[in-house]
Design a protein around this nucleic acid. Structure first.
Lengths: 193, 193
DNA sequence: AAAATTCTTGAGTGATTGCTCAAGAAAGAC
DNA sequence: GTCTTTCTTGAGCAATCACTCAAGAATTTT
C-alpha cells in the first residue's frame, strides 16, 4: 500500500474556504484544484465528485465547530460567562474580514436546499444538534441557579439560535464591531432577562 | 412604434420566482425563458443580459415590498398593532410552502456579495432603507406614547432587523407555524419590553 | 533488482453555459 | 396595399463546466 500524499484535513479546509468565498455553484473544479493543490483526478479519486468534496468539507466543518463549542463551554464551569464569551467570539469572527461572516452550514443550506434533499437533511440535522447543545447548556445554567426556574431551555435555545442567524446575516451589511457587539449584548440580555 | 408584447412586471415577477427557487447562479437562461415565456433574444433586448434581468427583478421586488410596507403601517394608525401584524404576516409568509422563506434582497446579497460589488452596494442600500423605515415607525410609536421615552429607535430597529433575518433563516429548517409564531411573539416583546 | 501495486498527472471529453444576430412576423405610416 | 419600422424568433457561437482515463511516477513486495 502506498498512501496518499495530501493532508485530508488541510485539503478539506481549503475547499471549504473556497466554497465559502464563492459559493458551491460558482466554485469551479479549477478553483478547487488551485485551492487544494490537488489535481482533478485526485479529487475524483478521493471524494467521488464535486458534491462529495462538499459533503466531506461539511463534515470537517462540523467537527471543527464541535471542538470549538466544547472548548468554549467547559464542563463544571459557570455557563453564562461561557455564553457571553461564545457570543463575543462570534462578534469577533463576523467582524474579521478574512474569516467568513456566514455559518457554512447555513450558507450551504441556503444554496442547496431546493436541489439536494439529502444534503439538506444532513445540514438540518447538524443545525438541530447545535441547537440541542445550546439547550443543554441553558439547562445546565438553570441547574446551577444562573437562570431562574421559570425559563424554558428549549424556547431560550431556539431564540438564541434565531438571534445568531440574524447576527451573522446582519454582519454582512454592517460588519462594524460596535454595532455587532451591541446586538450581541442585547441578545445575551434577552436570554438572561 | 410597435410595442413589446410582454408585461414587464409579470416577466420580472416570474424571473424573480425562478431566481428565488434555484438561486441566481443555478438559474440558466433556459430556465428563465421557460419561466418568463420570453426568448433569449427578447431578454437580451429588454434587460441587456442575465445580470440586468436580476437587477430589474430586484427593483421590482423592492417596489412590491415598499407598497406592502406602506399598507401594513398606515399613517395616523397606532404603530404597535401594525408591527404585530407585520410580524404575523412574516410568519405566514415563512410558513407557506409556495412562497419564499428568504428575503430576496438577503438571498441575492448572500450569493453575489463577493463577486459583484455594485449589486452588493445597491442591495445594502435597500436593506438600510428598510431598516430606516422601521426606525421611523418606532420613532412614531414613541411620539404616540406607545413606547416609553427611554427607548432608542435606532437600536430597536437594528435589533428588529436582526430578529427578522434570524426568523427567516430559522424558518428554512423549522417552517412549523407554532414555532415561528412563538419566536415572532418573543421578538415583538423584546421590542416593546 | 524486478515485479506488482497504488497514487498522481493533466490534456481531453461531451454537455451546458450565457449570449448573438440574421431572418421572419407584426404593427403603424402613407 | 405598400413601405418602413420595430419586435420576435431560435439555431448556433465560443467559453466554460464537471469529469475521465491512460500513461507515468512512486512505493512496497518478492
Amino acid at each position: 500500500m502506498r498512501q496518499a500524499e495530501f493532508d485530508r484535513e488541510q485539503v478539506l479546509r481549503s475547499a471549504l474556504k473556497a466554497f465559502l468565498h464563492k459559493g458551491y455553484g460558482k466554485t469551479s473544479m479549477q478553483d478547487l484544484t488551485k485551492a487544494t493543490g490537488l489535481h482533478p483526478g485526485s479529487i475524483y479519486c478521493a471524494f467521488g465528485n464535486k458534491r462529495g468534496l462538499l459533503v466531506a468539507a461539511v463534515e470537517q466543518y462540523k467537527q471543527d465547530r464541535d471542538r470549538q463549542f466544547a472548548a468554549t463551554f467547559p464542563a463544571n464551569a459557570p455557563v453564562l460567562p461561557s455564553l457571553k464569551g461564545y457570543l463575543d467570539d462570534l462578534v469577533a469572527e463576523c467582524h474579521s474580514c478574512d474569516s467568513s461572516r456566514a455559518c457554512f452550514l447555513v450558507k450551504a443550506l441556503n444554496e442547496m436546499a431546493d436541489q439536494d434533499a439529502e444534503l439538506q437533511a444532513e445540514l438540518s440535522t447538524s443545525l438541530e444538534t447545535w441547537q440541542a447543545n445550546l439547550e443543554s447548556q441553558i439547562q445546565r445554567a438553570k441547574d446551577l441557579g444562573e437562570l431562574t426556574a421559570d425559563k424554558d431551555p428549549e424556547i431560550l435555545a431556539r431564540y438564541l439560535v434565531m438571534g445568531i442567524y440574524g447576527l451573522r446575516t446582519y454582519a454582512q451589511t454592517h460588519p462594524q464591531r460596535e454595532v455587532l457587539q451591541q446586538l450581541a449584548d442585547q441578545l445575551y440580555l434577552s436570554i438572561c432577562q
